[in-house]
């Protein structure tokens, strides 16, 4: 299997409080990996370790995270976040920017100013995020005057515009209606042709629908990690079985 991200003995802390315990996991290239587990088990923390957002809120880690063999923990976080894009639970477009500028924001951070270069990338990203047809005539409107589902797709487009290798999604559809949710799920299906995706979700059906592999976290530990079909039909661990069948969590 072609490994994109290899996590070894990862431990994550908030101050002295250890919230991830000795996590080792390999994430294959161009696949979708779902992270499931009860609230507070460390799913978001794990995801945020992968693009060094964990340290933004003052967290620390030990262990190693290799992306294509390169140790993330020893690289400039600004560069890492360009390679591993992130979509958050709650859509968070920049309210002072137009739709166009929202998508172009990441490129502008990189120093790309020329609108002739930006425009085709913005268009391509919006198309990839299946939003282009809905907003192509109002690109100069504010990024917050669109529906929640559109905002989330705008945030996905914004992430894609920087051309990352990996997309990390933290419950990207949990604040959305069913139609928007299914749009996002279709999108994930499309995106995995070109990107490696790690998605946190509370929704078992969603995990089963979109992912190739599923990791079950419980109280800061990785309990089981396997093919999604196996996790949902024939898990090896009793805890996993109880969780996916909805007996706790």
């Amino acid at each position: 299997m072609d490994i994109k991200i290899s996590v070894k003995n990862l431990e994550a802390f908030y101050g002295k409080n250890k919230v991830l315990k000795n996590i080792s996991i390999d994430i294959p290239r161009n696949k979708v990996v779902a992270i499931i587990g009860p609230s507070g088990c460390g799913k978001s923390t794990f995801l945020r370790c992968l693009n060094r957002m964990h340290e933004v809120v003052g967290g620390t880690i030990t262990g190693s995270i290799l992306v294509d063999g390169e140790d993330l923990t020893k690289t400039d976080p600004v560069l890492i976040r360009k390679r591993l894009g992130m979509v958050f639970q709650k859509p968070n477009p920049f309210p002072t920017m137009s739709i166009f500028n929202n998508v172009a924001a990441g490129l502008r951070f990189n120093g790309v100013r020329n609108k002739k270069i930006l425009a085709p990338i913005v268009e391509k990203s919006l198309k990839q995020a299946a939003l282009w047809d809905e907003v192509k005539d109002n690109l100069e409107d504010s990024g917050v005057n669109i529906s929640g589902g559109q905002q989330q797709r705008l945030c996905i487009a914004r992430t894609l515009a920087v051309d990352p290798e990996v997309i990390l999604m933290d419950e990207p559809a949990s604040a959305l209606d069913p139609i928007s949710t299914s749009k996002i799920e279709e999108l994930i299906f499309e995106l995995k042709k070109n990107y490696t995706i790690v998605i946190v979700t509370h929704n078992m059906q969603q995990a089963a629908r979109v992912s190739d592999f599923t990791a079950f976290f419980y109280m800061g530990e990785l309990i089981e990690y396997d093919k999604t079909t196996k996790i949902f039909t024939n898990p090896s661990n009793k805890k996993t079985e109880e969780y996916v069948t909805g007996r706790f969590g």
Partner: peptide, 10 residues
Amino acid sequence: SQREAALALG
């Protein structure tokens, strides 16, 4: 979330 949005874009 605004700060994080920006940081996550590099």
